[in-house]
């Protein structure tokens, strides 16, 4: 595989990157880890005349955790760093789980979490759990900064809310509420290491014995990562029971809109949504019970 020809710049600051991106016009693209972009360019699926590399921008690196504000993950942060960071492991175990599940060691050492979202694959492993945890993204252009909910970020396969001159600078995840829990569950055709055929992220909170803030997000079963809002509504304000978890999982499966492709059939995916949602609800509930006293 030979890559097509392009120009390349590696700015040291965000301002320089924004300038290059704006000046670069239509043919200009951002390069993070390149694990999606290089493959797509090699296959001739994406064209670019200029790549603006963002990994050399110091300010975009790093993971910061503040108990009151939550987690901030800079756009140049590697998926490997997210998977291994002590604060992520301790306070955001489901986020770490999804990162650890993504691809393989070499790819996690190259790829960024932000790139996983910006690439907007319906199967993006890190999207469901970040949706379930109510993540937001900070987006910057020469015109200014805006913050948007991840719920409003994905528009279609490979399509996001980002304008051509915008850079996603950080991913923000709120701190976990008291007595809350989250989980990430997935299944892929080749055991553990493949791109997910179905993935599910769940978050919930216990208010006495009543379930609150129930968020269920599904991956690889619709044109974008999606929330199963009807399933969420069934559980919101109800008391935990296995029968309820079963019923909610069936509803999530009804809400999914999978297609048949190389990784799985639509029928199989629909069934797996129900199985994985139940597992995720159970794990999230168990974690919420565990976090009761914390």
């Amino acid at each position: 595989m030979r890559l097509p020809k392009f120009d390349y710049v590696a700015p040291k600051t965000l301002d320089e990157a924004l300038k290059a991106l704006t000046a670069g016009g239509e043919g200009c693209r951002l390069l993070a880890g390149g694990t999606d972009l290089m493959v797509k360019m090699g296959h001739g699926l994406t064209a670019a005349s200029l790549l603006v590399a963002i990994k050399g921008i110091e300010g975009l690196h790093g993971i910061r955790f503040d108990p009151s504000k939550g987690l901030s993950i800079g756009a140049a942060t590697l998926i490997a760093e997210v998977a291994e960071h002590p604060d992520v492991l301790k306070y955001y175990p489901a986020v770490a789980q999804a990162a650890r599940k993504t691809a393989n060691t070499q790819i996690r050492n190259m790829a960024t979490l932000a790139g996983n979202l910006c690439n907007a694959a319906p199967s993006a492993d890190n999207a469901p759990v970040l949706l379930a945890r109510g993540a937001e993204v900070e987006v910057v252009s020469q015109k200014g900064t805006r913050q948007l909910s991840l719920d409003d970020f994905f528009n279609g396969p490979g399509q996001t809310e980002l304008a051509r001159d915008e850079i996603l600078t950080q991913i923000l995840v709120p701190p976990a509420a008291k007595a809350s829990g989250a989980s990430y569950q997935w299944i892929s055709p080749r055991g553990k290491v493949d791109i997910s055929a179905v993935c599910v992220g769940v978050n919930l909170r216990l208010d006495g014995d009543v379930l609150k803030d129930v968020r269920i997000a599904l991956g690889a079963v619709a044109p974008t990562p999606m929330r199963a809002t009807e399933a969420e509504a069934l559980m919101e304000g109800a008391k935990w029971s296995e029968a309820l978890a079963e019923q909610v999982s069936a509803k999530a499966s009804e809400e999914s809109r999978p297609i048949t492709d190389v990784r799985a059939s639509a029928e199989y995916r629909r069934r797996m949504v129900s199985v994985l949602t139940r597992r995720a609800l159970e794990e999230a509930h168990a974690r919420a019970v565990e976090n009761w006293g914390v």
């Binding site: 390149g34 694990t35 090699g42």
Partner: peptide, 27 residues
């Protein structure tokens, strides 16, 4: 494979294992 799947091209960059087939030399 040339597309990150097979690992035959693995090298270490600043101590981290990466796929050299999808890593730009300029990067």
């Amino acid at each position: 494979c040339g597309v990150g799947d097979c690992g035959a091209c693995t090298v270490l960059v600043d101590g981290k294992s990466v796929s050299s087939c999808i890593t730009l030399a300029v990067a």
